[in-house]
């Protein structure tokens, strides 16, 4: 089953309560504005340095020195759509010797949750803790989860302060950026609708094109 088929199947199982919260997200977030605010092809990616799942610091400069960098933001370990996407990305962009592209996935979750996700799904790429959303805000993909959604998570015992060490429910919009070796953004995808990742299938093509021109 392809990623989008899996996501469709998951969305088909959405309860009416979840659907209300989902509609609110779509209503609240303006895809046009988000695309305007976020990094765009041609922009220079800001450098960053974040802890990985193993408690080591990973720097974007170091990653770029090996080649193309794919930076993907996911909402958190509580988001089943994000978990499916991470697993799909692992297959799409599995580290191949000589491929010269690295993938990092960022979420604001702290307290060892990156390790938990990485181990649970046997992911082979770096999961970074974007502490206080510093990188998401520099990439222009930071949003606040709307009230219905926050309430729904709270009723399941899922709380911002526990997950992020911060109140407020600020999270990144699911998004993926392909950054060329010189630090310039080559490709950007912002998924306001968190249940869909329609364009991810094109990533290998983007990477191949970048390799040809680099």
């Amino acid at each position: 089953m392809s990623l989008n088929e899996s996501l469709d199947a998951l969305r088909a199982k959405m309860t009416s309560e979840a659907a209300g919260a989902y509609e609110e997200v779509l209503q609240r977030l303006d895809p046009r504005l988000l695309a305007e605010n976020a990094l765009k092809p041609g922009d220079v990616m800001p450098n960053f340095e974040l802890p990985n799942a193993e408690g080591k610091m990973v720097s974007s400069l170091e990653l770029l020195s090996h080649g193309t960098l794919v930076v993907t933001f996911y909402r958190g370990s509580w988001c089943p759509y994000c978990m499916l996407t991470l697993q799909a990305l692992d297959l799409i962009l599995a580290p191949v010797p000589g491929q010269q592209a690295s993938l990092v996935a960022l979420s604001p979750e702290t307290g060892g949750r990156a390790r938990f996700v990485k181990d649970k799904y046997n992911l082979r790429f770096e999961l970074l803790a974007d502490v206080d959303n510093a990188v998401a805000s520099m990439f222009g993909v930071l949003v606040r989860l709307p009230p219905l959604y926050r309430q729904r998570l709270l009723s399941q015992g899922i709380e911002s302060e526990t997950l992020h060490g911060r109140k407020g429910w600020f999270i990144p919009v699911p998004s993926t950026f392909v950054v060329a070796r010189n630090g310039t953004v080559a490709h950007a995808e912002i998924h306001v609708d968190y249940t869909r990742r329609t364009e991810l299938d094109t990533l290998p093509l983007v990477l191949r094109a970048l390799r040809q021109y680099s």
């Binding site: 802890p51 408690g55 702290t110 060892g112 949750r113 390790r115 803790a129 015992g157 526990t162």
Partner: peptide, 18 residues
């Protein structure tokens, strides 16, 4: 860096992380 690493770390057993 210290603050980020401290906050990102699993101080308790990672298996207990929800």
């Amino acid at each position: 860096t210290f603050v980020k690493l401290a906050r990102a770390s699993a101080w308790m057993n990672p298996a207990n992380v929800p």
